[in-house]
């Protein structure tokens, strides 16, 4: 009798968990279906390669795609070396004292700061104080700051997975600390670090608030020609098309098309992260 009760509880328990999972999957499926079904109609070669025309009621979103690409690249150039450097310092060099703990705590807290606050901070620091103006540079730097907590934490986790015995083995052979890190720790940690970086960048690519005041433009007929140019960006374009345009109902399909391109881009970046991780891991295994 007792065993039967246990069995029923088990089945019920699994059932509840299954329902939870199905709910999450369904929400995701509904979002994807909604965007794909409403957005795929406007997708065409012209939509991807032409600028908007006629008060942004027709034409494509090419400048926004390119702008998002440039600003993400700028974010990568600034945030990847800085994030990796911080993580290596914290995990390999810093003593585990009060100061280090305080730095770690600050980094964790930084990841909870709303992105609009980063946007304001970007205006104060990069646009005004550094005189970068509203530009790709300012926006990229702001997004870089915003993604740092994520990239530092992910890199640190990756460094932690490298067994201590590799570091000890290297040091015992007369390697300096940097040599041990460079030749023994980093090669094993790189897949994890890269994955963290790309996930951070894909989040940055989809952000609106931090670029709102720091460089994103409502409409630009031409593509940016320097890092000090303003730019159009997909998330900001989407925001305008869905709330700020003078004829929202008319441009709704373009908004959905923009959303579709944006999520495809983010999915692609995440896919690249998965592939890099998989390939480097396979190479690591073939090597050992």
């Amino acid at each position: 009798m007792k065993i039967k009760v246990k069995r029923i509880k088990e089945i019920l328990g699994f059932g509840v968990l299954h329902v939870c999972m199905l709910c999450v999957l369904m929400i995701l499926a509904v979002i994807v279906y909604d965007i794909v079904s409403k957005g795929s109609g406007v997708i065409s070669w012209d939509f991807l390669t032409k600028p908007p025309v006629d008060g942004m009621t027709k034409g494509g979103i090419f400048p926004a795609i390119l702008g998002t690409f440039f600003v993400t690249l700028m974010t990568a150039v600034l945030a990847v070396p800085l994030g990796m450097g911080c993580a290596i310092y914290l995990n390999e060099y810093a003593r585990d004292d009060g100061l280090t703990r305080f730095i770690r705590l600050s980094i964790r807290n930084l990841s909870g700061v709303p992105s609009i606050v980063f946007g304001l901070f970007g205006v104060a620091l990069f646009v005004d104080a550094c005189h970068f103006g509203t530009s790709i540079l300012s926006a990229g730097a702001t997004l870089g700051l915003m993604t740092l907590p994520l990239t530092i934490t992910a890199s640190e986790e990756a460094l932690k997975t490298v067994p201590r015995s590799y570091r000890e083995g290297a040091l015992a052979l007369g390697a300096t600390k940097w040599q041990a890190i460079r030749y023994n720790v980093l090669p094993l940690a790189i897949p994890g670090i890269l994955t963290g970086m790309i996930l951070g960048l894909s989040r940055a690519a989809g952000e609106t608030a931090p670029i709102l005041f720091t460089g994103a433009a409502f409409f630009l007929p031409d593509v940016p020609n320097s890092i000090l140019s303003q730019f159009m960006a997909l998330p900001y374009h989407l925001y305008i098309m869905s709330t700020q345009h003078h004829n929202i109902a008319l441009v709704r399909p373009i908004a959905y098309g923009t959303a579709l391109v944006l999520i495809v881009l983010v999915f692609l970046m995440n896919l690249v992260a998965v592939i890099i991780r998989y390939r480097l891991r396979k190479k690591g295994n073939a090597h050992g």
Binding site: S165, E168, G288
Partner: peptide, 26 residues
Amino acid sequence: VGMVFQKPNPFPKSIFENVAYGLEVN
């Protein structure tokens, strides 16, 4: 003063590279 550890800890590199490692870092 060299050291051999309790648990064998070769690097995930080739046999050759493992032995050459100490020379290269020096």
